[in-house]
Amino acid sequence: MPSDQSRCSSFAREATNATAKAFSSSYTKHHHHQRASFWIFIASSTNITNLGYPHLYPSYALTTLSATSAPSITAIPSFIMDEKHQHLPQPMNMDPPRRASIFAKARQLLLIAVLLIASFHLVAVPFMPKDFFQCDHGSTTKALVPFEAHIISKCPDTRHALRNLILPAMQKVHDKVDFQLSYIGKPTANGGVECKHGPSECIGNIIELCARELYPDPKIHLGFVMCLTKDYPQIPDRALIEDCALEHAIDFNKLNECAARDETAHGIELLRNSVQRSADANVTISCTIRLNNEVYCIRDDDQWKDCPNGPGVNDLVLAIEKLYHGSS
């Protein structure tokens, strides 16, 4: 029968072998640090001297290890690591003190910039002229060229000048001129106006002046005037006025109300003011064209007169362009 000491020695060997197998099996399924922990445990805690059985482990050098001398996990050779963890990325070697130093310098520079800007606005800006920060790139807005036609509504020379010179030129330079139609007549002592072709012409003049007042855009009221002037002998026939108003999107009722307002006083006042403007410019012939407040050309007795630059459309356009681009 074996002795008690031999039974104890046998039991100790079996227990140690079982424990080693259990830990070895567990390590193959888990992270490599479990295997390292097992060997550290054996090396530090299972001191053979403490167990009282130094003779059981003659081939291991673990009897001299203790908790203070056990190797750390970082000292475990890489060949014992699990294969799937061999290529894990290593953490970057950060340098917190250096980054903190850079951030501190950046904050200092930003604070200095803010202080300089604030000081400039508090100290220098109040003493600067108001237009100091305004850039003067030269004026980009040019003055419109005064362009005026003095006419009467029932006149063949008016029709020719509008159809062959004024309207074609306006299509090209309408955005460069300040266009206006003025009428020719004679103011009377009783506050009225005397027209060359009688009262019907005065009514036609008033209708056209009301169109300009209601629709200041020359593309509208000038087209309406041209429509009436094409059939000038019929002015002021109601059907003609209605047709031309419809063609140029003008409200006929508003035209009629303008001409008859205050028992025709409003319309007569419009005509008197226009006639007076022509008289102030010393214009008595229809159709007289003025450019930049000077006579440019006259259409009278079915011919052009006093046209030093020529009566052609291109001549008029070039004269307007020259005046427009020469202005500032």
Rank of each mutant, 00 (worst) to 15 (best):
residue 168 P to W: 12
residue 24 S to V: 12
residue 88 L to R: 12
residue 54 P to V: 00
residue 7 R to C: 14
residue 284 T to N: 14
residue 19 T to E: 11
residue 217 D to E: 06
residue 297 C to P: 08
residue 12 A to S: 11
residue 118 A to C: 08
residue 183 Y to L: 08
residue 238 R to G: 10
residue 317 V to D: 09
residue 54 P to F: 00
residue 185 G to A: 05
residue 12 A to F: 12
residue 270 L to R: 03
residue 147 F to E: 04
residue 25 S to P: 01
residue 272 R to S: 06
residue 187 P to W: 04
residue 298 I to Q: 14
residue 95 D to R: 09
residue 227 C to V: 03
residue 186 K to S: 11
residue 123 V to L: 00
residue 86 Q to Y: 06
residue 56 L to H: 08
residue 250 I to P: 07
residue 76 I to C: 13
residue 16 T to D: 10
residue 181 L to S: 06
residue 59 S to T: 12
residue 271 L to G: 00
residue 219 K to I: 05
residue 10 S to W: 11
residue 107 R to I: 14
residue 316 L to Y: 09
residue 61 A to D: 11
residue 6 S to N: 08
residue 235 I to P: 07
residue 84 K to E: 11
residue 192 G to F: 09
residue 67 A to Q: 06
residue 142 K to W: 09
residue 314 N to C: 03
residue 221 H to V: 02
residue 20 A to I: 14
residue 196 K to N: 00
residue 212 R to V: 03
residue 98 R to V: 11
residue 97 P to A: 12
residue 93 N to W: 13
residue 123 V to F: 01
residue 171 Q to R: 11
residue 213 E to T: 09
residue 61 A to P: 11
residue 143 A to D: 08
residue 207 I to R: 00
residue 216 P to Y: 09
residue 281 A to Q: 12
residue 317 V to L: 08
residue 274 S to W: 01
residue 129 P to H: 01
residue 235 I to N: 03
residue 317 V to Y: 10
residue 206 I to R: 00
residue 43 A to P: 08
residue 205 N to L: 10
residue 179 F to K: 04
residue 14 E to D: 13
